[in-house]
Structure formats: C-alpha cells, structure tokens
Simulated assay, not measured.
Amino acid sequence: MADERYNRKNPAVKRILQEVKEMKANPSDDFMSLPLEENIFEWQFAIRGPSETEFEGGIYHGRIQLPSDYPFKPPSFLLLTPSGRFETNTKICLSISNYHPEHWQPSWSVRTALVALIAFMPSNPSGAIGSVDYPKEERRALATKSRESPPKYGSPERQKVIDEIHQYMLSKTPSPKPNPEECNKTSSADSDDQSQTKPQDTEAATAEPVTAVEEKVVDQIAEEAGQTVVPGANAGENVAAGDNRNGLVRQREQATVAVRAAQRRGDDRLFTWAAVGLTIAIVVLLLKKLVRSSGHGALFMDES
C-alpha cells in the first residue's frame, strides 16, 4: 500500500494503517479484509459462515465504509453475497454499525466488527433494517452457491481485491456439510432396506470384521459431532463424554464474556481517572500562566 499518499498525522489514517498492518500480520481462518489502494476508508471483506449452522461452508463478501473520524464513529456495512440473512447492496443495521453510534467504542476495530458480524449471522433478524429471514434450506443452498465465484462489484480495483479475498477464503473454508434432515431421511430409508434384507445376509454382514478405515471414519464423525468415543464403552457413556465437552465449551465461552466485561469496566475506570488527571493538569498550567502574566506572583500579593 502506498502510505505516502496519505497524511499519516491524521488520526483516522494512522489508525487504519495500523489495522491493515495487524490484519496482514495475524490472518484469520474466519475472515479476511483489505482496504482499497485508492481509498483506505473503503474495505472489502469476506467472512466464513459459522459452523454448525445453515451458513456453514459459505463465503460471504461485503464492503465496510469507515467514516472520516474513525475510530470515534462506527463504520457502515453492506453485504454483496446472498445469504438469506442479510439483503445485498443495502446498508445493514447492527449494534456495531453506523445505525447505532451510541454502542460503538473507539477501541473496536475492523477485526472486532467482522467477528461480531459472524456472530450475528445465525441470530434472529427481528425486522432489523437490511435483514431477511429465509428458510434454512434456502440458506444452505446459498451457502453452497457462494463458493462458486466471488460477486461482481464496482471498479476493476475493487474486483481484484474481492477475487484475492475469495481465493484466500476458499483455502480456509471447508465445503458445507450435508443437510442433517436429508441425512436422517437417508438413514431411515437405509434402515427400511436393511430390515427387508434376508436373515442370512444380515448375519453375514454382522460377522464381517470392522476395518481400520471404518474405525477412522467413525472417529472423524465423532470428532465433528464434538463427542469423544471410547472403544468398548456403551452409547450412554459416549454421549455423556460429549455432554461434558459441550459443558466445558460453554464454560470457556462464559469465562471469555466475563473477562471481556471486566476488561471493559477496567478500561472505563482507567479513562475516568485519566480524564480527571488531565483536567487537574490543565488547571495547574492555566494558573501558572496566569501567575507569570501578572508579574511573577504579584497578583497574589497585597497592594499595601
């Protein structure tokens, strides 16, 4: 990026260039975002559909427009890829967007906003501006389609950035998992077919040894389901292991939320004391200036 074309003393430019550097130094598997060369206040991005949802496997592109007084005011968001959750080419209403500046904090960044946007994907639209509520089946179909090609948008420079981001996200985003409902239907059909199998065929199938490949597949399925399969254990014990793991995940998530809340409270107190200290320092400086201008303290001496 040609930094020399921008005034690096400008607080917004300085902050944006810092975020660009951080984004490149610490890439994420869940999103990617880059500003345009000709306008660093406009960023193109793509997010990965959250796992275990109908958006899983999808790659959703969009645009972020940063205000001239960023980071003191929030950015605006516009989605370019159909998702069944947000309208395309329409600024969306989120608590982190310019629709709610009262919620925005200057300590937040483009990275923070993208993480929040991913979290908003499976949430209830509740009639918010720029939101839609498609059935899950349509959302899954759109997630699959989103991988085929990046959206076409704007100038050749924009398209170049969009294409670059899409290729990166394809390398980080696994294909969508099969629809659980369809899998259940298939399993039911297979069960019906097996129930009609001749007894001797069933006995022969049961007698066949389990191969190493089959064991590997079982382990992979269990891992994806978030369960620990213990060889020789019954189904109840394996489900309990999965429940324990899910409980640990929830505890970690709750702890993370608590830590972040504590950090915000600590930051608020720090800012308050800093403001008080700054006010006192300004008052002292003004008093010193007043004393000097009045003849080195003559103002405080008796006229007699």
Rank of each mutant, 00 (worst) to 15 (best):
F86H: 05
S28C: 00
P151T: 14
S188M: 00
S51Q: 10
L278C: 11
G295S: 11
P135G: 03
P209F: 09
L286H: 01
K24F: 05
E138A: 12
L36G: 05
L17H: 00
V239T: 11
E223M: 06
R140M: 05
D69L: 12
L34D: 00
T88A: 08
T112H: 11
F120H: 08
E56I: 00
K185W: 06
G154F: 05
A240K: 15
A189V: 00
L299K: 11
T279E: 11
V218R: 12
I40L: 05
E56K: 00
E223G: 00
V13K: 03
P176D: 07
S28A: 03
G154W: 05
E223L: 03
S171H: 01
P67H: 06
V259D: 11
E37M: 01
F86A: 05
V230H: 04
N238T: 07
N89S: 14
K9V: 07
L248E: 05
E224Q: 15
E37A: 09
S68F: 05
G247L: 07
T279C: 14
D193C: 03
P71G: 07
E4W: 13
P180Y: 01
S97Q: 06
I40V: 09
T90D: 10
N244I: 13
G130K: 03
N89M: 12
Y6G: 04
F86D: 02
T53P: 00
D219Y: 10
R292Q: 06
S95I: 09
K177T: 13
A204M: 14
A235N: 03
I129Q: 10
T202S: 11
M301Q: 15
R48A: 11
Q159D: 09
S76W: 09
S131L: 06
A128H: 10
